[in-house]
Amino acid sequence: MPEDRFAGRVWGFDDDINTDALSPGQYAVDPVEVRKLHVLESVNPSFASEVAQGDVIVAGRNFGCGSSRETAVENLKALGVACVVAESFGRIFMRNAIALGLPVVVCAGIRGVFEDGDRIEVDLATGRIVNVGSGSELRGDALPAEMLEILEAGGILAVLRKQRGG
């Protein structure tokens, strides 16, 4: 079950990072152990090998645009990414993140405030975001209660299990 607050090291990405970059088509039906090695290789070839448990992605507009492939989210989780904060998200990516229990926050102006390696603090319930080094503080959109509820349950399948009394 994800917590509501995170602190982590930042990986920065620009606008329009698409699902082909997050989960390349030629590995579509490979297991996650293979897929995760190719995450964002067309954008930042060192990301997949150097990203560590608890790291946070800070991105520009339209992060995760493109296809419906849930592997885009699953791959990031498998690499240990704790949270993604972006100016905006591709709709299905955001939906899939909620469904898989990966915290996401929409925050205008976020990309200009963080560099690779900065430390970030994120409070999901309030949307408060802090750059620990510079002290800059931004206010992202707090997630709607309906989405936070699924996220806090650990994803849509955890909700389903609960509804079925499992």
């Binding site: 419906s68 492939r69 849930e70 299905i92 899939n96 469904a99 994803g155 849509i156 399948l157 909700v159």
Partner: peptide, 9 residues
């Protein structure tokens, strides 16, 4: 479009 987990639900 939706992902696989939402489709399961």
């Amino acid at each position: 479009g939706i992902g696989t987990s939402d489709m399961v639900y």
